[in-house]
Design a protein around this nucleic acid. Sequence first.
DNA 1: CCATCCCGTTGACGGGCATCAATGAATCGA
DNA 2: TCGATTCATTGATGCCCGTCAACGGGATGG
Lengths: 250, 250
Amino acid sequence: MTEHQRQVISSALEGRAANGKMQRLLDALPDDLQGEMLGIWERATVPAGHILIEENTEAENIGFVLDGLLAMIKDLPDGRRHIIGLLTPADLFGRAFNGKSGYRIEALTETEVLTCPREPFEALLVRSPEAERLFLLNVLDELDAAREWVMVLGSGKVVQRVASLLLILCRHKVQGAIAPRAPINLNIKLKRVDIAHLLGTSPESLSRSFKQLERDGIIAINTPYDMDVLDLGELTEAAGNALLIEDFDL
Amino acid sequence: MTEHQRQVISSALEGRAANGKMQRLLDALPDDLQGEMLGIWERATVPAGHILIEENTEAENIGFVLDGLLAMIKDLPDGRRHIIGLLTPADLFGRAFNGKSGYRIEALTETEVLTCPREPFEALLVRSPEAERLFLLNVLDELDAAREWVMVLGSGKVVQRVASLLLILCRHKVQGAIAPRAPINLNIKLKRVDIAHLLGTSPESLSRSFKQLERDGIIAINTPYDMDVLDLGELTEAAGNALLIEDFDL
DNA sequence: CCATCCCGTTGACGGGCATCAATGAATCGA
DNA sequence: TCGATTCATTGATGCCCGTCAACGGGATGG
């Protein structure tokens, strides 16, 4: 491992949410492969609106989110756009081992990513069963997340979906930690339009649902991007218990 | 490999849709592991309504669908039930490597499956990188399917979702083959209620949507379980082009 | 052969929500 | 500093669709 490589990776991971996962991934590798793993990654900062992987193309890059927010987006012929899922720090994206994407990867905010060409990444996975298993576990997690979204989107009323989204954000925020009775502060990075497209609704209906949750005393809206969840129990109630896995330590 | 084992597997695969995939999986294994793989599977026939994996339990079994139809189902507290996804012949189910399920696996029709305990399956994957990669590819396919459902469920109108479902069924039917201009006959194994829960709507609305597609000359309904897709192009139109990957050879 | 059940369909009704339109607040650039 | 743009919110309107109800046909069982 060259000093340059070490520098890239360490500066990239410094003080970020993603460092734990990346570090675990590295530690699991045999020593002789660690350098190779580090060597193929390139760090990049992309502005909001930038498209990292185009729709319906053989993705040539694998990516790892360090900071910011990406989304899997599909444009519909009628001009509307649908957000299939989000990519947050510590998420992998790209199409290792399987072809075209069907959707594009777009930055919703300014984002820092690590990218590497697809071939050497695949080659490394083939060579190292440990790395491949880590990747497999990652994909399994993504599968759970996707199925959870299927659950959320299938459940009727808009308020329920909004509540479910908030629950997921809370879970993401307090992960591992014991959930306090105290309000959970959420810093939403998404615009209302994006949330709407994510939940399969319109910004107007979304706004009304937020207001309703606020009237019910379940949340407090400080700014459109800063809200507090006041009552986790009632929020779960409002969500209709639609979430697949409820692993809050209540 | 004992004669008993060989008998179980060969009779199980005989003349079934699932045999191709299982055979490929076997061929990819080193010779000395093939016997081990075959030895751990047990064949079973379960009646409709039978629950193969309970919700919120550590699944102790891995399964492989030979014939019939399974579904991933989550019950909502209000009594409604939501179908998250289907499992058709050649599909794997179970929770190798990651814990609880959050939904249950239930047979919608009488179903033949191969099952095996989880530990030896995982052990075999760990021992054989080839098997693990096959499993990984399987999971990647499932991920695509799940994201496709996210897409379908997010797209507004019920008629669009119905059309999308029909498109998926058509694709499943003609997979690989060149899609003919001639009508595609679909044999639906699902009850209307189940389709409704799958698409996040009600049986009544579903019926109306089917009728509308028939009025528009896009499909012909012979019986509720036997319909012909008359115009694949218009069906795609009606679906709003919401599908992620459109790999028909039109 | 009839009674019962299950299921799909059809009709009527009401509510939720998408759409259109307008206002207000915040940010940005000239 | 002042327009211009973007975005969130609110109101009004009409339609989609979820619900309740009833009907009919096919299957099952006595």
